[in-house]
Design a protein around this nucleic acid. Structure first.
Length: 509
RNA sequence: GGUCCGUUCGUCUAGUCAGGUCAGGACGCCAGGUUUUCAUCCUGGUAACACGGGUUCGAAUCCCGUACGGACUACCA
């Protein structure tokens, strides 16, 4: 197979917001496709009519757009192998199911879910495992136990039926996984899975094989939760006499603490998002946070996700999407699950935040400033951001690093006052005020030189003066280089703040 | 319960396929440095081959077993 034949797909079910595990699966598919000059297809697997959630499909599309994952074919991009929504392919599946019946690989079954549940609970009570397999199907209501006439009669009566796969009795199914290698399972432990439901829709198993074949999918890269059904899928390909795609089953993304699959609950409990975008459940109205809304930069999010389960084999950690495409290989995907680490995610975001242009960050900060009741010029915001952004992990953190540029101290941190506002401070700050009032240039370096010379000449303590000064300007002991701050505030504002502070703090006895 | 998959610092991981440097890097944490503050930044430190056998001169690496964890076990995907 030449590289041009590489066709992979991401096939979500629109039953809710897309979990980051799903995003990562899509990302790896995307990287694999691009790396190999192939195509990525988005197929919507909406064969379960009961679980349909309005808005979920659009959410999925919006999420990938935000991440920068582009599809070559699919529900939105179009293509020659459509339709790309399984609900619109409904008519294909019955035909293929019947093909399997004719070739002896499948059969009609008439057991109702209630009947089967009953059998299952009887088995459970006896501590036995119920498997609808070669043994059990002899005792159940299906085309194998019924006569042809009885089956035909039931069908023509409109009796509800399903079509089940006729699992071979004792066959070693040998599978090959790109990540895990050779896997072998005996078919006797597998069951006669339903391929076609009584509502006229196929199950995942049938639809996925038929569509992957029809869409000429070359590699199936999906989550590890599908590994147990791989033998069925392999057998299905064999039954159809179709060429199999190559398979790769990705490890899971685990919760940061303890064990198990990362879930929405973990995010709520530990305070981080598990979905790329914020999602409002249409039924309950409950809102789940998203990486985007929490201030993550899309590129940082993608970079972090790519490294969760894959690595380039060396020490590099920062990758653009382009670089990921260049470097990505399935062979370097790990076998074991990865715990999501919110702290490392924040670190990635910090790295990307530093690369972000100041005026673009300013654009994002202006609304935040406004919601704090402050109207700011974009240019000034941009300038200030340049000074403080290295201190922040997220855009929303930046405001807390620069609010004092725009808002005079409302109060003075009492601890700081206790520690740094001493008896001499009042007179010293008055002296400093005079110096700044008369200074020739309000440039940062110049002021620093003048003020430091004054401190040395007077033999004042540098820490004493500068901290008291900071207290007057900022209201607390925080923020960047103080002379940079007052240079931006300007002489008027600086002197006003000094007056205000001197008034409020007064002379300490 | 059954089937399958997995297991290297607290976390993400390199090293495993071709057995042979004090098991390397990053996040976190701790310490020191820079600094007028808080951060950033820089330097250093902490810390792991799940366990038990076997093969071998030599095992994180190969083999077997055990333990632990996970996924799956629907007319859901």
């Amino acid at each position: 197979m030449s590289n041009n034949d590489v066709r992979v797909r991401f096939a979500p079910s629109p039953t809710g917001p897309l979990h980051i595990g799903g995003v990562r699966t899509a990302l790896y598919n995307y990287l694999f496709a691009k790396k190999n000059g192939g195509k990525l297809i988005l197929r919507i697997e909406d064969t379960d009519q009961n679980r349909f959630v309005p808005g979920a499909e659009q959410y999925i599309i919006d999420s990938f757009k935000w991440c920068g994952i582009e599809f070559d074919e699919g529900a939105t991009a179009g293509g020659d192998y459509g339709p790309y929504k399984q609900s619109e392919r409904k008519n294909y599946y019955r035909e293929y199911a019947i093909k399997l019946i004719k070739s002896g690989h499948a059969y009609y079954a008439f057991d109702t879910p209630e009947e089967l549940n009953k059998v299952r609970s009887v088995y459970e009570a006896e501590k036995r495992t119920f498997i609808y397999n070669a043994d059990e199907r002899k005792r159940l209501k299906n085309a194998l136990t019924l006569t042809d006439e009885e089956t035909k009669a039931l069908l023509s009566n409109g009796e509800p039926y399903v079509i089940r796969f006729k699992m071979p009795e004792n066959e070693n199914v040998i599978m090959d996984d790109l990540i895990r290698g050779r896997i072998e399972v005996n078919s006797s432990v597998l069951d006669d899975k339903i391929l076609f439901k009584s509502d006229g829709m196929p199950t995942y198993h049938l639809a996925n094989i038929v569509d992957d074949h029809l869409m000429k999918i070359s590699h199936v890269i999906r989550g590890e939760e599908w590994l147990p059904s791989l033998p069925l899928h392999v057998l299905l390909y064999d039954a159809f006499k179709w060429e199999k795609p190559k398979f790769a089953h990705l490890p899971l993304i685990l919760k940061p603490d303890g064990n198990g699959k990362l879930s929405k609950r973990d995010g709520d409990r530990l305070g981080f998002p598990v979905f790329p975008l914020q999602w409002t459940d249409p039924k309950t109205g409950s809102v789940s946070s998203g990486f985007r809304e929490d201030g993550y930069i899309a590129k940082a999010f993608v970079n972090m996700l790519a490294l969760l389960g894959w690595n380039p084999g060396d020490d590099r950690e920062i990758f653009s999407m382009y670089e990921l495409v260049e470097e990505f290989t399935i062979e370097r995907v790990g076998k074991s699950g990865s715990k999501f680490d919110p702290q490392k995610a924040a670190w990635f975001n910090h790295k990307y935040l530093q690369k972000e242009k100041n005026n673009e960050l300013a654009e994002m900060l202006l609304p935040i400033a406004e919601s704090n009741g402050v109207l700011v010029e974009k240019d000034k915001m941009s300038r200030v951001i340049g000074i403080v952004k290295e201190r922040a992990n997220f855009v929303k953190d930046i405001w807390n690093q620069l609010d004092f540029f725009f808002v005079r101290p409302q109060e003075y941190d009492s601890k700081a006052v206790n520690k740094r506002w001493k008896h001499d401070s009042y007179d010293q700050m008055n002296e400093l005020k005079d110096i700044l009032y008369n200074i020739s240039s309000f440039k940062s370096e110049h002021m620093e030189e003048v003020v430091k010379t004054w401190i040395e000449n007077k033999e004042y303590g540098m820490g004493m003066i500068m901290n008291a000064f900071r207290l007057l300007i900022v209201g607390a002991l925080r923020g960047p280089h103080l002379f940079d701050i007052i240079a931006i505030l300007g002489k008027d504002e600086t002197l006003k703040r000094m007056d205000q502070g001197l008034n409020k703090l007064g002379r300490k006895e």
